[in-house]
Design a protein around this nucleic acid. Structure first.
Lengths: 364, 364
DNA sequence: TCCCGAAGTTCGATTTAAATG
DNA sequence: GCATTTAAATCGAACTTCGGG
């Protein structure tokens, strides 16, 4: 009777999920044995092949699927990392995500995705959710991030390995992965300079972005070393914006402005590709031929850059590599439970397409 | 072997995480009481404000963060849905993800992201991982999906609410969200027809995609009802491909082919925007002006469509809405534990930009 | 079926120590 | 001691039950 009652205890599970106990019951062994066999734990050495087969067979029959929640609770590991992006619709974000995802898959991790929409409170809430779920690591894609994320350093980050892509936090144990903005910008002007351009317009990024300053520094240093004159009238700044996709309109308008002022320039360096596409449109609409009458160069090498007409010359950020690199940093930190932050600065690459050429021999 | 920490019943936790017991110990109450207070459970009615404050204060001091793994194990809910995409670099995918993410956030869900890379084994492994993590629902973004995903229907789907975006499975309890491809394609030809075009070229999609057949049906039905002649020589098919981004090259080459054969057409309907951009490039390179000498229309309205020159006229899929819709279906199914599959077909929208116009009065 | 709080069971799995022959 | 198996403790939280004012 007593045993019967005990058996009744866990009978049909409304849930429909199969537990290790169900297998134990049907196979005639204890849950411990089943666990040992299914995990091929050290103790499984002593278990006869017959028993093992039996258990495996029943597990297969019942369609057993181990509950990772329970397993994680016990093992304190869940093979999950949190992935916070600051705007998933940013074309710059996509290849990074791809790189991250591919690297995570190989490392048998999976990611909890959070899009902060460039909003601080949303970022904070997501961060809290991820921490409550006990993610083992955190990757933040901070491209075009306008809000401050110092809380990453403040908060609790001492304990959980974190990497930021596109930013470098001065405080805290946060690793970072960035492109070498200064070198990239230098490559851009250098490309135009070596083609013969001397009157170059610049659409700089919004001041709030770190990239803006870094890239400008690269341009200035090149100008100084070669004696290239930077005409202040040809230097415009993109307005602060929370949406990278607005760069197109901004680039369009700023270029219109340059043309309206009848300023003379044979080439234009845009802050990024989307801005460059906007600039190209303004030039084309105004009857200025790209690249014959004006060369245009972008930055990033996002997907639309190769699809435009003419295809855009640009400075490529190794986005997939950056994603993979961040995963590497976080995965290593988890494996070795180290906390010292590492900072990677990756090299950009000049991609010459058809939006740049030598300046026309005689004026515009 | 066993460290001192392990022997001491429950003292400092190397982990660093604070448990409900730690609070209980420090506040001088039992874990049960702490749990009741922190969750404001029914029984908390009887607990004096003083006790509550004390417990809350200690929780705050210690930086307590409830372990959702433990909570989920107990409650059988984890507020997580699995999100499988078939290629995150597809520009079509991005706005859908955005729509999904926004809707999930409002519903207090978070998503486990999986990119199947259009690979069946990878899809299967991810599916397994998600099920083991006991996701409450599943959303599959099946755009440009070449592999079969019948396993969704087969497998275990009876139990977990699932929605597919961009496909409709005949079997199983899988809900679906699709654009009305037939209506969309009809709108595209109708737009060109009403502008006066009669010689129209078509770049159809790969045969393996369901969308291809549906869109072609829309075009045929329009042609029949108006008497528009469809010249077989002007109808080409995109090759099978596992990467939607290859559509650009394919569109380029097929259009080159049309031009090389000296075929006459005043407008071109592309399978999707990326293909259309490829076609526009081929036309432009060949000296055919778009839209003056040849109109081009796409499908989808992905981001690059608005950035091209000329900006692309296209049939817009309500991608964000589709994402939100899928979330709605899944969330409702979870809440009401219903299993009957629902199928939503959303209306497309004609977006007239500048790649289409009236045909030139006299031939090409 | 008032007030206050604690003890004990449960979720599903892993792992230790221990019990059999 | 060895091969074979299992009871019991554990992970962290929630909830049911119970015992004194």
């Amino acid at each position: 009777m007593a045993s019967a009652g005990a058996q009744m205890k866990r009978q049909s599970r409304s849930n429909g999920t199969v537990t290790i106990r169900d297998i134990a019951g049907k196979a005639g062994f204890s849950p411990s044995t089943v666990s040992i066999v299914l995990n091929n734990a050290p103790l499984a050495r002593y278990i006869p092949a017959e028993t093992k087969e039996r258990i495996h067979k029943v597990a297969r029959q019942l369609g057993y699927r181990p509950n990772q929640l329970a397993r994680s609770l016990r093992s304190q590991r869940n093979h999950t990392i949190g992935l916070i992006v600051f705007n998933i619709t940013d074309p710059f974000c996509t290849p990074i995500l791809h790189g991250i995802e591919t690297a995570l898959y190989q490392a048998s991790y999976i990611s909890l995705l959070a899009d902060a929409h460039n909003d601080r409170s949303r970022f904070e809430r997501y961060l809290e959710m991820l921490l409550e779920r006990r993610v083992e690591g955190l990757i933040v894609v901070a491209n075009w991030l306008v809000v401050q994320i110092d809380l990453l350093a403040d908060l609790e980050n001492r304990s959980i390995p974190t990497a930021v892509i596109g930013r470098k936090l001065s405080l805290g144990a946060v690793s970072s992965v960035m492109v070498d903005n200064e070198a990239g910008a230098r490559m851009a002007v250098e490309h135009l300079y070596s083609l013969g351009h001397r009157e170059i317009a610049f659409l700089r990024g919004p001041k709030v972005l770190v990239d803006t300053g870094q890239r400008w520094r690269g341009i200035r240093s090149f100008a100084q070393s070669t004696g290239l004159a930077l005409d202040p009238k040809l230097i415009l700044d993109l307005p602060k914006s929370f949406d990278p996709n607005e760069g197109f309109d901004a680039g369009f308008r700023l270029t219109e402005e340059l043309l309206r002022r009848k300023l003379h320039f044979t080439a234009l360096v845009a802050f990024d590709d989307v801005t460059a596409l906007g600039a190209m449109r303004a030039l084309t609409v105004a009857g200025v031929k790209v690249p014959q009458q004006c060369s245009v160069i972008g930055f990033d090498d996002v997907a639309p850059a190769a699809l435009s007409f003419p295809p855009l010359t640009t400075i490529r950020q190794p986005m997939e590599t950056m994603g993979a690199c961040a995963v590497g940093l976080v995965a290593d930190a988890i494996a070795e439970s180290q906390t010292l932050p590492l900072h990677r600065k990756l090299a950009p690459e000049l991609v010459v397409r058809q939006s740049t050429t030598k300046p026309a021999t005689e004026s515009q």
